[in-house]
Write a protein that binds this DNA or RNA. Structure first.
Lengths: 333, 333
DNA sequence: GATATAAATTGAATCGTTTCATCGAGGAGG
DNA sequence: CCTCCTCGATGAAACGATTCAATTTATATC
């Protein structure tokens, strides 16, 4: 059906080896070069990447494994990755681990078996044993957003500690003392970091910290809703709440709306991740936003270097800054 | 390095042909079956999909081409596709055409050259000539969300006409007559459909329609912002506005907030696409929501049938219903 | 037990590349 | 003129599976 390298060789009257050399950018004589180009054109020859992969064990494909595809965070990152790797001829296959470590492992095995050249992964658990276990060290992997234990890997992270620090510090300086925090599961890296940022403010300002004001959700809308209600029903409720991811922020806002709590008069609120929140909600919500496209781009860049065989200062950890966007959802006490 | 089918055959003392039969689910004698299973286990044998692809010309990969990755609509659909196709062992390559027909064509060529088994595409233009031109008819393709001219293809669409009809009808029955509409570019299928829904209500209710109240944006936040301002600055502004996609809805809400326009008292508003909008905005926004996951799932299902060689009633067009979610953003006049 | 039929097995050819040992031509140096 | 190099060209052997014609084995029938 489609022309093969043999057809090209035959038409150009050279050996297949020569055609292959030409196709892979090695020196061939001027005259052969012209003959081959002519033949390629006349046959509309396209190199078969599958056959090539079989020989080279390279697929020009990378995989991105995330706990969920359909959220702004994942997709912005994936867009960044796709855009960056596109220029080098790589394609990106996406995998949804559905926040399940078993599934994550299965997906890694799956893409490994498919001979992907690299993977960027947003791990779903705090342990990374299975990652290196499956991928070995032939397939480069880059972590993003979350660090894991028991796996030496490159990573692109956001400085959650200081992002949260900044937000909570703002609350403190405006006079808040009872500050609620709704964060993620203790076993997730980013959640721990965000919590640490919170803690540090209290330490640095030498203020007492009330552990009962920290609530651990699972990064879903439902828990955001539930936990803020818990906080507000305390006999001495917080005057401000910081919610440490997007979905939970949505849930919290819903709860607040339903309960008719006035923001910022009755409660100051800081959200996470989505600039839009600040723009469409009234009063405009103060939020911590992460540089999502940049995470994707940096991860892609790092992975690309590794796939090209560079082992410079491995494992490398890049930390990007998050921004605190001040809105009108904080009251000065 | 990794075990091959030959190693398995050698260890099990059968021919590679038999092993292959076993692996592909054909009948093998009980005793051979056991021997092969034993060998597979001991060697930790994994079938090499690349080698298989070379023989079968199937890559067990599909591509999804969308105008933009980083929006909820695309990603929800992709999630639906990935989830559905995962069970059959397919992987999903994502491609961002950046709303550029040229790039779309290039991406199609790219994935075709990679031997994908099928593609689902959300076309960026109204013409589909390049799609069939590139893909030929060996590679099945399914359109989603938008129909194109000059290409006979399966498609999964949303009944935009009636979704919009429902929303606008609601406004009419509540007494609104000057109803603004902010829709997409005239050359995009969904935009035309949404506009048609609007028009029909006026026809059916035998009411005069003011063309100047229909504004054509480009589905971005910016134009949503700009166009609603234009509408509100008319000497006789609309009492209600329907915004026909998510990004423009965001823009419109921003503009409304900035201008201090009270909803629904001074203006009734209906948004699009995102249930969240209804939940977090006060007063809760009435929205038309599309069944995004279902679009992905149906598209995947159709594509799967085609990839398996079924040609039943081609080209098949599936239309899904959108839902109108009533909020508190509409005032009874 | 002989024969016909069906089912399971074999092993080589094949898919379309890359790679590598080998070869030949042309140029430089003596 | 001869030898030594260098470089491009050659063609066959991989890569790891599937497939198919040919062959063996098992099963059924009389």
């Amino acid at each position: 059906m489609a022309a093969t390298i043999k057809d090209v060789a035959a038409l150009a009257q050279v050996s297949v080896g020569t055609v292959s050399r030409y196709l892979n950018g090695y020196e061939v004589s001027e005259v052969n070069k012209r003959k081959i180009e002519e033949a390629v054109r006349r046959l509309d020859f396209k190199l078969n990447p599958v056959a090539r992969s079989l020989k080279t064990s390279k697929s020009m494909t990378v995989a991105v494994v995330v706990p969920a595809l359909a959220n702004v965070f994942s997709m912005s990152i994936i867009e960044g990755i796709e855009r960056h790797l596109d220029q080098y001829g790589y394609s990106v296959i996406v995998c949804d681990s559905q926040s399940d470590v078993q599934k994550e492992k299965a997906k890694l095995q799956f893409v490994k078996d498919k001979y992907v050249d690299g993977v960027v992964i947003m791990p779903t658990g705090s342990d990374g044993t299975h990652i290196t276990e499956v991928l070995g060290d032939e397939i480069p992997a880059v972590l993003m957003d979350r660090l894991v234990e028991n796996a030496k890997l490159d990573a692109v992270l956001v400085d959650n500690v200081n992002a949260v620090y900044q937000a909570v510090e703002r609350l403190i300086t405006l006079g808040h003392r009872r500050i609620g925090m709704i964060t993620g599961p203790k076993h997730i890296y980013t959640a721990r970091e965000r919590q640490e940022g919170y803690r540090r403010v209290f330490v640095d300002y030498n203020l007492p910290m009330d552990e009962s004001l920290i609530r651990y959700g699972d990064y879903t809308e439902d828990t955001g809703y539930k936990l803020i209600n818990e906080l507000m029903r305390l006999e001495c409720p917080p005057t401000a709440v910081f919610v440490a991811n997007y979905e939970m922020t949505i849930g919290a806002i819903m709860a607040v709306n339903e309960a008719g709590i006035q923001i910022p008069d009755q409660l100051s609120l800081i959200g996470f991740d989505q600039l839009e929140l600040s723009k469409i909600i009234r009063p405009s919500l103060s939020v911590v936003v992460q540089p999502m496209a940049e995470i994707g781009q940096k991860a892609a860049e790092m992975l690309y270097q590794r796939m090209r065989g560079s082992h410079d200062n491995f494992p490398q950890v890049i930390r990007l800054k998050a921004n605190f966007i001040d809105g009108q959802s904080i009251k000065k006490l």
